[in-house]
Design a protein around this nucleic acid. Structure first.
Length: 272
DNA sequence: CTGTTAACCTGAGTGC
DNA sequence: TGCACTCAGGTTAACA
């Protein structure tokens, strides 16, 4: 479910509720997530104060006053909701963070592709975050960067853009949408992009992600912000999930195909 | 190194 | 109503 805009929406929703708050109790009901929730996490996080919550790619990083951090990831179906502590449990409510006794942050994840991990202050870099590409809004991410990185690469540009080693945060939806706006077919080999293509693509990736954040993300099925509200960017989608429907720009039927094992859509006329 | 595929897991939707 | 089947927003392990 969540790509960068959805994770950022959750981060912004959580921030006012968690910043400066003390963790009274952590309850792990099911530790079997993408990686097991460390057995010591509940004890180690208890009584710590949350200094801030940041985002790196699709990971949320919760810094504690001890200097240790937690890494939260939503996988495909994860939710992090701010709730009243009396909120009844439902299926797939795997981890609770009770703050100062009156605010509950609840991690809910049917498919369990998400993660709740510990990042010790003794570890400078966490293995999951090492080797990640730049943030799309980092000045280091621009057309020149994309051009350099794509030289000699035969992979389809859509898979290239979704590769977290190249740039973080663009998943299946926003990769498709960025390529539409840039007028580039998802099947084009990355190494065949011109300098101008790369400049346009970098700009459109940033643009699409920024607009989606403004709309509170894209809700297709599962996604909800920390307050449980849906996003609205799905109304703005030009190609994702529109296989067989007319292009909003030229009327040509949107084409679907599978790239790197993922469903992809593009307009055969607008994208070359 | 690059590139491709399957795998992890559950639920929703479709067609018979 | 039930069953078999497909697909889903992410990521990585295993392979050629």
């Amino acid at each position: 479910m969540p790509e960068l805009p959805e994770v950022e929406t959750v981060r912004r929703g959580l921030e006012p509720y968690v910043r400066g708050r003390r963790i009274a109790r952590v309850t792990v009901r099911d530790a079997r997530l993408r990686w097991p929730v460390p057995a010591s996490l509940a004890h180690d996080a208890a009584d710590r104060r949350i200094e801030r919550i940041a985002r790196r790619g699709k990971y949320l990083i919760v810094t504690l006053d001890s200097g240790d951090r937690m890494i939260w990831h939503l996988g495909m179906t994860g939710r992090l909701l701010v709730l009243d502590p009396a909120q009844p449990l439902v299926k797939h409510d795997h981890v609770d963070f009770l703050l100062d006794g009156d605010t509950l942050i609840r991690f809910h994840d049917p498919r369990r592709f998400g993660a709740v991990l510990w990042w010790s202050r003794d570890e400078n870099v966490h293995p999951l975050l090492a080797g990640m590409g730049p943030e799309p809004f980092d000045p280091a991410f621009d057309g020149d960067y994309l051009f350099r990185k794509s030289r000699g690469r035969s992979v389809a540009v859509k898979n290239f853009v979704m590769d977290g080693h190249i740039v973080v945060g663009a998943g299946n939806i926003y990769a498709a949408e960025s390529l539409f706006r840039a007028g580039i077919r998802p099947t084009r080999r990355a190494g065949r992009l011109t300098r101008a293509d790369c400049a346009r693509l970098a700009d459109r990736i940033r643009e699409v992600l920024a607009e989606a954040i403004e709309r509170g993300g894209t809700t297709l099925r599962d996604f909800a912000g920390a307050d449980g509200a849906s996003g609205y960017f799905q109304q703005e989608l030009s190609v994702y999930g529109r296989d067989g429907e007319p292009c909003r720009v030229c009327g040509t039927l949107i084409k679907g195909l599978v790239l790197g094992g993922r469903a992809s859509c593009y307009c055969p006329r607008c994208q070359r």
